[in-house]
């Protein structure tokens, strides 16, 4: 089979509807394919997976390869990685993209190794360069630097993509896609790992470490009562609240909220930082925040210098102002 320009996306449907990374990557793949040509394909392994196949087509997949078999009912790293590399060898896509869930971060390196190709982990952007190569942008060196990486010769070009990086396409029931159902290959090796028990234990609430929007408050919020307003704002924005050490020590908020060296690392798309000076013990945990809005009376505070948008004003007033603005804008 001759190599083609197809872009493949691994269908990671476990925890769907919460886990939407496959849809997000499909959307980007559709975008990239307008530059490279080729078909956007999803691969679905499992048992009774029709709903996911339909879902992927409705979200941009032009073709879906399916292997549906009772022995694939639960995710198996050995079987799934073997099947992925078998499929790639057979159909020779140019690119293979995998969502950076934990399973994705495990299967992708194994498939890459079997196929003797490269892999970039946890990408936060994907583009096509003038030579038609996939440019894989990923944080590296502890998140302090961003690297742009290519796979010049080996194929497929492989990357895992951080969940939340790309917006998904709207659900389109009218979309058409070709479905290729394949039988389980006879030479699939025995699984060397035995699953004794598996239990779905969903996390009850969104964790600050995973939140897309984090609102951090510091001593500059002024009082416990004023700090509470950040929770009102968070509820409106679907955000989580974080805090600095003085805030936690003063018991304005529980210790779980501490962000920094002694607390949690966060990686939100947007960080709103209110009345925080920006001590290194706090900012060390912010290196993966994509977009930072800081509010501080002091324009020279470190937090203001590292922000994308620095608002020189009273933190509490701006918090109330944003609450008001969102209530107005979200109305109807």
């Amino acid at each position: 089979m001759k190599r083609n320009k197809d872009i493949w996306v691994f269908g990671d449907y476990r925890n769907y509807f919460q886990n939407r990374v496959t849809l997000q990557i499909l959307a980007r793949a559709v975008d990239l394919s307008t530059q490279t040509g080729g078909t956007v394909c999803a691969v679905v392994l499992g048992h009774r997976v029709d709903t996911y196949v339909a879902e992927y087509i409705a979200h941009g997949a032009q073709k879906v390869y399916v292997i549906d078999d009772p022995t694939l009912r639960s995710y198996s790293i050995e079987r799934y990685s073997w099947l992925m590399s078998w499929l790639v060898t057979r159909y020779q896509p140019e690119t293979l993209l995998v969502g950076a869930t934990r399973f994705g971060q495990e299967i992708a390196p194994r498939v890459a190794k079997k196929l003797k190709t490269g892999l970039t982990a946890d990408c936060i952007d994907l583009e096509i360069n003038t030579k038609g190569l996939l440019v894989q942008t990923a944080p590296s060196f502890g998140g302090n630097l961003i690297a742009k990486i290519i796979t010049p010769v080996k194929r497929p070009q492989m990357a895992t993509v951080r969940p939340g990086t790309f917006p998904e396409l709207p659900h389109d029931d009218a979309a058409n896609g070709q479905v290729m159902v394949l039988p389980l290959p006879g030479d699939l090796p025995e699984d060397r790992i035995r699953l004794v028990t598996s239990e779905h234990r969903p996390s009850k609430k969104q964790k600050i470490e995973d939140a897309d929007i984090v609102i951090c408050g510091g001593r500059g919020m002024g009082s416990k009562g004023k700090f509470k307003k950040l929770f009102d704002l968070a509820a409106l924005m679907n955000a989580e609240v974080g805090a600095t050490r003085p805030v936690v020590y003063s018991e304005w908020v529980s210790h779980d909220a501490l962000v920094g060296q002694a607390g949690k690392n966060i990686k939100p798309k947007i960080l709103l930082s209110f009345g925080i000076s920006g001590a290194i013990q706090h900012t060390a945990a912010l290196s993966d925040a994509h977009f930072i809005v800081a509010v501080n009376k002091n324009p020279n505070a470190t937090m203001m210098k590292m922000a994308d948008v620095a608002i020189v004003a009273d933190a509490n007033q701006v918090c109330l102002g944003i609450i008001k603005a969102i209530k107005e804008k979200a109305r109807d």
Partner: peptide, 29 residues
């Protein structure tokens, strides 16, 4: 190595650092 790093940059160095000042209503808008 099958991959090649083309470029490395600091995410913070790329920031434009817009400063907004003035009345609260104005900066929020």
């Amino acid at each position: 190595s099958p991959t090649r790093i083309m470029d490395v940059y600091s995410p913070t160095a790329q920031k434009e650092n817009r400063v907004l000042k003035g009345a609260v209503k104005k900066v929020v808008d």
